[in-house]
Simulated assay, not measured.
Amino acid sequence: MKTSGVGHGTGKIILMGEHAVVYGEPAIAFPFRGVGVTATFNTCNQNQITSSHYSGLLANAPEPLQMIQQLTQRLCQEFQQGAFHLIIESTVPSARGMGSSAAVATAITRAFFDWIDVELSDEKLLAYVNFSESIAHGNPSGIDAATTSGSQPVYFEKGKAFEAFPLNIDAYLLVADTGILGRTREAVAAVAQLRKTQPEPTNRFIHHLGTLSHLAKEAIIHNQPQALGDYMSLAQHDLRALTVSNERLDTLIQLALDNDALGAKLTGGGRGGCFIVLCRDYQNAQHIQTQLKDAGVTETWMQGLGVYENV
């Protein structure tokens, strides 16, 4: 066994299908390397953790870090490993729908296996991350675990196996934070209420969001960035009709479109949180990024896609 091990996990973005996925429609999510987590295990004489949330003995860590306690305990028991000092460095913002907890679990699991110098299969990694996510979220869909531990977009439909497919779209994705915490639980409840009071139009919007997810997948596979942008903007229209957008999101998304974005929409639970903008090239992305910052957006992240992925 080595004296130290390092592992990484990426953030994730829901590209299409949020809220509709709850009702059996497909969604698309993919790893977002604009943010990520690095975990490091060092051999030590007692279990310690250093992180932005808490530093000290792992046994005394606050309740939100329970998933880390239980994941590391399971790993150490299964492989009969001794004490460690775990260091976690993260640029994934919390409560923004970017898969923070799953990215942490991915980085920890990879770092642990690097530390003990044992090969880690994709299946084992996913199993450990799902175990950790079940502690953090109770009954997660598994989409965060699949995307933060993978390298390709995931097409997800409730009750069906995840389908990975290549990210073949020549564009840039800009992710921007409204500065307002997302209110996922409230937004989900609002959609459920709409289905009771206005079932016909609500179900029509939900089904259309699912259709747009399918079309977006085809646009990505066939490298049609303008079509993908159009589908994103249509999805935002549906999400606004379902009351999960808000004035701040609407204003900033329109600003991006007014500055030649291919498309834009909220991502995740909505009513705050983040939104995503599809840009034709790096210059376009930079220009929109500047316009958004001038409008008060404090945090933005960028990722090249397709041929721009490794630029």
Rank of each mutant, 00 (worst) to 15 (best):
A164H: 07
Y172I: 04
V21I: 03
T267E: 00
I13D: 09
L125P: 13
G56M: 05
A164R: 09
P166L: 09
A190I: 07
A105W: 01
H137S: 11
Y172D: 02
F275A: 03
H19D: 03
F131R: 05
P225K: 04
G17F: 07
W115C: 08
I143D: 07
G306W: 09
G11L: 12
R33C: 11
T38M: 11
L181H: 14
F79V: 11
L167Y: 08
L126Q: 05
D177L: 02
Q286R: 02
V22F: 11
R204I: 00
I14Y: 13
H222W: 12
S213G: 06
S141N: 07
Q48N: 10
Q66G: 06
G11A: 15
P166D: 14
R33A: 15
I276L: 08
A27Q: 03
W115N: 02
T148H: 12
K158S: 07
N47W: 13
V307Q: 00
N310E: 01
L167P: 08
V21R: 00
S52C: 09
T109M: 00
R183K: 12
I276R: 04
L15E: 08
F79T: 14
C76M: 14
L86M: 01
K265W: 05
N45P: 09
I206Y: 08
A29H: 06
G5L: 06
S55R: 04
N47R: 15
H207D: 13
T38W: 09
N47D: 15
D238M: 04
I180R: 14
V92E: 02
T147E: 13
H137E: 10
L173P: 06
K124Q: 05
Q66R: 14
T290G: 00
G11K: 10
S149V: 11
Y155S: 03
I220L: 05
H19K: 00
